[in-house]
């Protein structure tokens, strides 16, 4: 009888504690929902620091995106200086989870060519593939404890895929559940070598109350660091009919 009471008591306390911890599925779903957008625009300044400490000339670019459950589209436009001005990279990810990427130049309308979504953008640590957050759709998701980054608690989520065509096979994210933002994302290849780490340094609050990265650093395997600062943008960007026209025309 006493043992039964103890077990009941333990059960009563354990249940709420268990219920308070999010499962991998709920956390992943939260992240997928938080990414949905009918249209957004973010303008950012990007500076790359080489392992020898040399700081490349910073550049500005704009990212316009539309993130739906079935289709996700992004368009990156180089703003300044001359080496990036008018250069576009656009990509689309459909239900088949393949990412189709094109690159083109504003001045040369017929210059559309296929591009690699896993390639570095404008010689920086930014990679279009990362912006799609494809790992949130992978079937293997597991929670691996929690961590604390800059005073914020986050849950470690390991995402894995067996897709041989994916440039990244495993991602370890540290997700702040309240802010619906991964504060640190580590991407690994098929040999479990760390490709790059995306660390959020400063956040801003969106209208929904969720957090978005204002400043982040992408550190690559060779210690090349890319600092990104979002200085402008629009949460409710009105996507024009021609925004993704080159992507549609290239089909």
């Amino acid at each position: 009888m006493t043992m039964r009471c103890i077990l009941l008591l333990l059960g009563a306390f354990a249940l709420p504690a268990y219920a308070a911890e999010p499962t991998a599925a709920t956390l992943v779903e939260t992240m997928k929902q938080a990414r949905l957008s009918e249209g957004f625009e973010a303008r950012m300044e990007v500076a790359t620091i080489l392992p020898n400490g040399h700081r490349a000339m910073p550049f500005k670019l704009s990212v316009v995106g539309q993130i739906g459950a079935e289709r996700q589209r992004l368009r990156v436009r180089g703003i300044s200086p001359d080496k990036v001005r008018g250069r576009f990279v656009a990509a689309e990810r459909n239900a088949d989870e393949r990412i189709r990427t094109i690159a083109y130049d504003e001045q040369l309308p017929r210059s559309i060519e296929k591009a690699d979504p896993a390639a570095r953008l404008f010689d920086s640590g930014l990679v279009l593939w990362d912006m799609f957050g494809a790992w949130w759709s992978w079937p293997q998701q597991a929670i691996e404890g929690s961590d604390r980054i800059d005073g914020r608690t986050c849950t470690l989520v390991r995402s894995r895929t067996d897709d041989g065509t994916s440039p990244v096979r495993e991602v370890l994210s540290c997700v702040n559940g309240d802010g619906k933002l991964s504060l640190r994302t580590q991407l690994f290849d098929r040999r479990h070598r760390l490709l790059r780490t995306i660390a959020v340094k400063q956040t801003m609050r969106k209208e929904s109350g969720a957090l978005a990265a204002k400043k982040l650093t992408v550190t690559e395997a060779d210690r090349t660091a890319t600092e990104v600062e979002v200085y402008g943008g629009d949460e409710h960007y009105l996507v024009n009919a021609d925004t993704y026209a080159p992507l549609d025309n290239g089909k």
């Binding site: 625009e41 303008r43 704009s62 316009v64 629009d234 960007y237 009105l238």
Partner: peptide
């Protein structure tokens, strides 16, 4: 200081 139309163009916020 610039005209509103110019500002909307450079910040990619037409009509806003």
């Amino acid at each position: 200081l610039m005209t509103l139309t110019q500002m909307q163009q450079i910040t990619d916020k037409p009509g806003k």
